[in-house]
């Protein structure tokens, strides 16, 4: 059946099987492979995207259920030249290693911060309970989310990251690195 889905600001019309999962629609039909698949029991969160403004595991939704919806994937929130503060924070704080959980983690974390603002350690940890990472032991992910929560206080719109705000993040990281090297 035909569906219309707006993904990262662009509308796509495709003829899909009713059983097609949204994650497969995004990866196989739209060739956006940034969203990963880590399980078949909706446990891992690697496939997390934003569906009509909510963080959703895209392996739990059928493509046909997204008909008429607005989807944002990791490709839609920032680019290397204009990172979303959450993306920048993951890089600045070494919040990723193999990177496989990262797109889902970042998408989940953005909504978490949008909903909750600044959080303590425990709150971030509980807030990310739907997303598994096997590499980092989570410590630097928590740090990244907290740093981003700080930065996201600055108004932000996709593709128009406030360059001044971003700069601040980089400067801080530089300062951190320098401080550490003088230890």
């Amino acid at each position: 059946m035909d569906i219309n889905v707006r993904v990262n600001g662009k509308t796509y019309t495709r003829d899909v099987e009713p059983r097609l999962l949204l994650v497969d629609f995004i990866r196989d039909h739209l060739a956006m492979t940034g969203t990963n698949i880590g399980c078949d029991t909706t446990q891992c969160g690697a496939c997390t995207i934003h569906l009509d403004g909510k963080a959703v595991k895209s392996c739990t939704v059928l493509a046909v259920q997204a008909d008429g919806s607005e989807v944002t994937t990791i490709e839609g929130i920032g680019k290397p030249s204009a990172l979303h503060p959450m993306q920048a924070a993951f890089q600045d704080n070494h919040g990723l290693q193999c990177g496989y959980c990262t797109p889902g983690m970042i998408m989940a974390a953005i909504k978490l911060v949008e909903e909750r603002g600044e959080m303590n350690d425990d709150e971030v940890r509980h807030g990310l309970e739907g997303n598994l990472c096997r590499c980092t032991g989570y410590e630097n992910i928590v740090k990244s989310v907290q740093a981003a929560a700080n930065d996201m206080g600055v108004a932000h719109s996709p593709f128009e990251a406030d360059p001044a705000a971003h700069h601040e993040t980089l400067r801080e990281a530089e300062a951190r690195a320098a401080a550490r090297s003088h230890e």
């Binding site: 940034g34 490709e75 290397p80 990177g99």
Partner: peptide
Amino acid sequence: DPRMITGQAKY
């Protein structure tokens, strides 16, 4: 990281 945080990593 730049490729991995923007969904451009290729697995």
